[in-house]
Amino acid sequence: MKTIITTAITIGLLIANLAKPCLAQTATSAPSASVSGTYSLTVIIHNVNTRSGKLYVGLANNQASFTGESFQRKVIDVTPSGELTTVFEGLTAGKYAVRLFQDLNGNQKMDFSGQMPSEPFGLSNVSMLMGPPDFDQSAIELNENKSIRIRMMEM
């Protein structure tokens, strides 16, 4: 139980910094023209059980931007059905990790019930939590245009 609570707190802290900087940016549904030497990362979010609110999606390019302010951010309106998609463009080759949460009540922050997240969240390369993830565990190598799928999780 202690491990679950520690993991939940760490997940909450990873995602908590995501919303405030996201307010000025919105998601686009289609990538623009490719810039030479850069790539796009398409993020497809599935297992969205509650069909309301917004998704706050943060892209990290190192440990500091994974645990703090994101390198790039998007806000996605949750649609009535289907998977949700956003695209990060103009990325140089390297390692990137995605973290996101679903704001169900419109307060633009990750909510908790005690120490456990009470709103759905997701991380790249993480489908089951066995402890607090770090940047390297969540990172994907971007060396071409890529699409990744992230499964929404609930505690």
Rank of each mutant, 00 (worst) to 15 (best):
Ala93Met: 09
Gln108Trp: 03
Pro133Gly: 03
Met116Val: 07
Ser147Glu: 09
Thr10Asn: 12
Cys22Ala: 15
Glu141Leu: 13
Ile76Val: 10
Thr79Val: 07
Gln25Ile: 14
Ser70Trp: 01
Ala93Trp: 07
Glu83Tyr: 12
Asp134Val: 09
Met110Pro: 00
Phe135Pro: 08
Ser34Asn: 14
Pro80Thr: 09
Leu142Thr: 06
Thr26Lys: 15
Arg51Asp: 12
Ser65Trp: 10
Tyr96Phe: 15
Gly106Gln: 13
Ser40Met: 09
Met155Glu: 01
Gly114Ala: 03
Ser127Ala: 12
Gln63Lys: 10
Thr85Met: 14
Asn143Cys: 11
Val78Arg: 03
Gly94Asn: 10
Lys54Ala: 11
Thr7Arg: 01
Gly68Glu: 02
Leu59Met: 11
Asn145Val: 03
Val43Pro: 11
Met155Cys: 08
Glu69Cys: 04
Glu119Tyr: 09
Ala27His: 09
Asn145Glu: 09
Leu91Ile: 14
Val35Asp: 03
Ser34Met: 10
Met152Ile: 01
Leu142Tyr: 09
Ser113Gly: 08
Val98Leu: 09
Pro31Trp: 05
Ala24Met: 11
Leu84His: 15
Ile9Pro: 00
Asn107Ser: 07
Val35His: 08
Gly106Glu: 07
Asn61Ile: 05
Thr26Gly: 13
Ser34Cys: 05
Phe71Asn: 01
Ile76His: 00
Gly12Asp: 02
Ala16Cys: 12
Leu13Asp: 13
Glu141Pro: 02
Leu18His: 09
Met116Leu: 13
Asn62His: 01
Ala60Glu: 03
Ala27Lys: 06
Thr7Ala: 08
Leu129Arg: 02
Ser32Arg: 15
Pro120Gly: 12
Glu89Pro: 03
Arg73Val: 11
Tyr39Trp: 04
Ile140Val: 15
Pro21Arg: 10
Ser36Asn: 12
Thr6Leu: 05
Leu55Ala: 07
Val43Cys: 13
